[in-house]
Structure formats: structure tokens, C-alpha cells
Lab assay of single mutants.
Amino acid sequence: MEVRTIKVFTTVDNINLHTQVVDMSMTYGQQFGPTYLDGADVTKIKPHNSHEGKTFYVLPNDDTLRVEAFEYYHTTDPSFLGRYMSALNHTKKWKYPQVNGLTSIKWADNNCYLATALLTLQQIELKFNPPALQDAYYRARAGEAANFCALILAYCNKTVGELGDVRETMSYLFQHANLDSCKRVLNVVCKTCGQQQTTLKGVEAVMYMGTLSYEQFKKGVQIPCTCGKQATKYLVQQESPFVMMSAPPAQYELKHGTFTCASEYTGNYQCGHYKHITSKETLYCIDGALLTKSSEYKGPITDVFYKENSYTTTIK
């Protein structure tokens, strides 16, 4: 009895394709271990004539594949690729409408935090270190965002349907971005203890939790000093293409032309909904596939993004 075979390709990165001759009487799992086709788990399936010449994702289970996976995804987590594939199996079914010149995501599976993050990423200057993220990001900007969303979920250790947080998501993504040249110098002034300067680099240099107003941050924000008295913390120097200011959701007025974009969060910790506000020729609110415009805006804002380049204080 002759062994019926077909020729397929296996890959971990969709760049390096490895030619395989597979036995049609055995499952993919018996031949390769966990195997995925377009995100779908085909591990328990036997090869079919229609699979001839198709590319299958496999887990990096030998040295060659491990090197290829690390170079593309910059992670050695053995569960990463499987999590990416199972997320992709959902995100490829989502709709990605162009809204006001940006790629958004039609609401499904509690994905409003991903839509808000995706919209924000198209408006701030950011370059990702893992080629996987950078490639998928370019495709997302062009309207094909399924891979990018699935990668975000995998890097953030999230599953489809789980509630997510924009600030946490951005923080994970910033860790995989090139923020080497970003720098922030802060000064804390206390009447009792004097003053202390701190220099922050990388992710810490672009994120701040405690106030939404970048102007206020430049002037000074009140913080408790270690001595128990009130101290003032203010920005001395900022070198970065953008800054992200966050605070627990509270009524906040966004003035046209003073910011790049913002995240609105309605609801409580267990259950809520994100919308995205962007400042173009007027203010726009993007909620999944829905767009509304207004000249002014007041609502429960939790993150505001500002364009920056270089700032030095005039406070002496």
C-alpha cells in the first residue's frame, strides 16, 4: 500500500517557510505537534488534498525554529505562539472599519479597549522592536488589523473576551517599542525636605499616572512627601515624541487643539466601556464603527496623549 502524501510549508514567522512532505494517514499533531492554519487549530486533523502548498504555523520545537521565533517575536515564552494563534482565530472574524481616516474595530468580545489602543497607536510616533509587531502594525494602518490585535493580546497575556485596560495595554506595548531616546527629568520640591531631581528613561519617561493635564504637570502637581507634608512635583525636561497622561476616570474637559487623542471610560472596574476622542479640525468621538463630532467635550476621561518633541522648564 502506497503512502499518500502532500507537500506543505511549516513556519513560526510566515517569513521562513520549511518544506514538509506530510503523510495523509496521520494527523498534523502526530507529525508536527500543535499546528495552526489561519489561526485555526488543526492539530487533530489529517492532511487533505486542499492543504497542498498551504502554510501551517507550528510551535518552535527545534533550534532553527526557536531562533526564527525569537528573532521575529522577541520572546522565548513557549506558550506565546499558541496564544497568538488562538487569538487570531477570533480577531480574523472582527470587522476593521476605516473611521475618520483611522483603522478602528467594530465592537465584539469586549474589544473596546483594543480599538482605543489601536486608534491611539496610529496617532503617536512609535516604532516597535519585534519585527512581528512592526509588520502587523503597518498592515493594521492599511486596514488589516487582525494579526496586530492578536499579537497585542498575546504580548499582554490576554484572551479574547476578557476586559482590558488601555493604560495597561499601552504599557505592555511600550515595553516592546523603541523608547531608548526618551528621557524625563522631574523635580520634587518640599518646604521641609528641599528639592530632589529624578531622571527617568524609556517607558517611565512617557507615562504618568495622577493627572490628565500635561500643562498642569509642567506647572506642578501636589504629591505627598515622605515627611508627610505636601510637596510639588513638576516637569523639568521632556525628550520624547509623545507623552501619555493618565488618571482614574473623572469628568474632564478636553479643549480642541490642546491634545492629540484621549480615552474615555464609562462604567466601573468590573464592567465598563471605552471610547476614543481625537482632536482634528474639530473633536471626534470614535466608538467602534461609530463616529460623532463636537466642538467641545466633557466626560469621564482616563488617558490623554500629547505630541511632544523637546521641553525644558522655565521655572527657576
Results as ranks from 00 to 15, higher is better:
His276Ser: 00
Leu65Arg: 09
Ala289Lys: 04
Leu119Cys: 13
Asp165Trp: 01
Thr226Asn: 11
Leu290Trp: 10
Glu68Cys: 01
Glu71Arg: 09
Thr260Ser: 06
Gly272Ile: 00
Thr211Leu: 10
Tyr172Gly: 13
Asp287Gly: 01
Thr282Asn: 05
Cys261Lys: 07
Val22Gln: 07
Gly257Ile: 04
Leu133Pro: 02
Lys127Ser: 12
Phe217Asp: 02
Leu121Lys: 02
Met207Lys: 03
Leu153Asp: 03
Asn110Gly: 06
Thr11Tyr: 09
Thr116Asp: 02
Gln195Cys: 14
Ser213Phe: 01
Val243Asn: 01
Leu102Phe: 03
Asn268Phe: 04
Ala140Asn: 02
Gln98Glu: 09
Asn157Leu: 00
Val206Leu: 01
Ser295Lys: 14
Asp63Glu: 10
Cys182Ala: 07
Asn61Glu: 06
Asp63Ile: 07
Val188Leu: 04
Ile277Phe: 01
Thr55Gln: 11
Gln134Asn: 08
Ala205Phe: 00
Pro47His: 03
Tyr137Asp: 04
Thr302Trp: 00
Leu118Tyr: 15
Tyr274Ile: 05
Lys255Ala: 04
Ile15Phe: 12
Thr199Asn: 08
Tyr113Ser: 09
Lys7Arg: 13
Glu215Gly: 07
Cys271Pro: 04
Gln216Ile: 03
Asn111Gln: 03
Thr312Met: 15
Tyr252Gly: 04
Lys298Trp: 11
Thr76Gly: 10
His18Leu: 09
Arg184Pro: 02
Asp23Asn: 14
Leu212Val: 08
Glu264Thr: 03
Gly299Thr: 02
Gly164Asn: 04
Glu296Phe: 15
Trp94Thr: 06
Gly228Asn: 04
Asp303Asn: 02
Ser104Gln: 11
Leu81Ala: 00
Asn157Cys: 08
Gly82Pro: 14
Leu88Glu: 05
Val12Thr: 08
Gly39Glu: 11
Leu283Met: 07
Pro60Cys: 13
Gln30Met: 15
Cys156Glu: 07
Leu114Asn: 08
Phe70Ser: 11
Asp23Ala: 11
Ile301Leu: 03
Arg66Gly: 12
Ser50Glu: 15
Phe9Thr: 08
Tyr137Arg: 03
Arg141Phe: 11
Ala262Cys: 01
Leu254Tyr: 06
Leu290Met: 15
Cys285Ser: 07
Leu118Trp: 10
Lys298Ser: 12
Gln134Thr: 10
Cys156Ser: 09
Val12Arg: 10
Arg83Tyr: 06
Val42Pro: 09
Thr302Glu: 00
Thr169Lys: 01
Tyr284Asp: 07
Leu153Tyr: 12
Leu119Asp: 06
Gln237Tyr: 15
Trp107Cys: 05
Asp135Phe: 06
Ile286Lys: 00
His74Ser: 07
Ser181Leu: 08
Ser263Phe: 07
Asn49Val: 13
Ile45Pro: 09
Pro249Val: 05
Asn16Trp: 10
Thr27Lys: 08
Thr211Asn: 10
Pro241Met: 00
Lys275Gly: 04
Asn111Thr: 05
Cys193Gln: 00
Lys229Cys: 09
Arg83Gln: 03
Met24Asn: 12
Thr199Arg: 06
Gly288Asn: 00
Val160Thr: 02
Leu153Lys: 03
Leu114Trp: 05
Asn268Ile: 01
Ile105Met: 03
Asp41His: 10
Thr292Asp: 06
Ile6Cys: 10
Leu291His: 13
Gln197Ala: 13
Tyr172Phe: 09
Lys218Ser: 01
Thr302Ile: 00
Ile152Pro: 00
Asp13Leu: 01
Leu37Gln: 13
Cys261Asn: 00
Leu65Gln: 14
Asp287Trp: 01
Thr211Pro: 08
Tyr208Met: 04
Leu133Thr: 02
Ala231Gln: 00
Arg184Glu: 03
Trp107Met: 00
Glu162Ala: 05
Ser279Glu: 07
Arg141Thr: 10
Ile6Gly: 09
Arg167Val: 00
Glu2Cys: 15
Lys191Val: 11
Ala87Phe: 03
Gln216Asp: 13
Tyr96Trp: 03
Tyr96Arg: 09
Pro300Ser: 10
Gly53Phe: 10
Lys316Thr: 02
Arg83His: 00
Met24Phe: 11
Lys201Cys: 10
Gln196Cys: 12
Gly228Met: 00
Glu281Pro: 05
Gln175Cys: 10
Glu264Leu: 09
His273Pro: 02
Asn178Met: 06
Val21Thr: 13
Leu153Ile: 06
Glu125Met: 00
Phe56His: 11
Ser86Val: 13
Arg139Asp: 10
Thr103Tyr: 08
Cys112Thr: 06
His176Phe: 12
Lys44Met: 10
Phe9Gln: 13
Ser25Gln: 13
Thr19Pro: 13
Ala231Glu: 01
Gly161Ile: 07
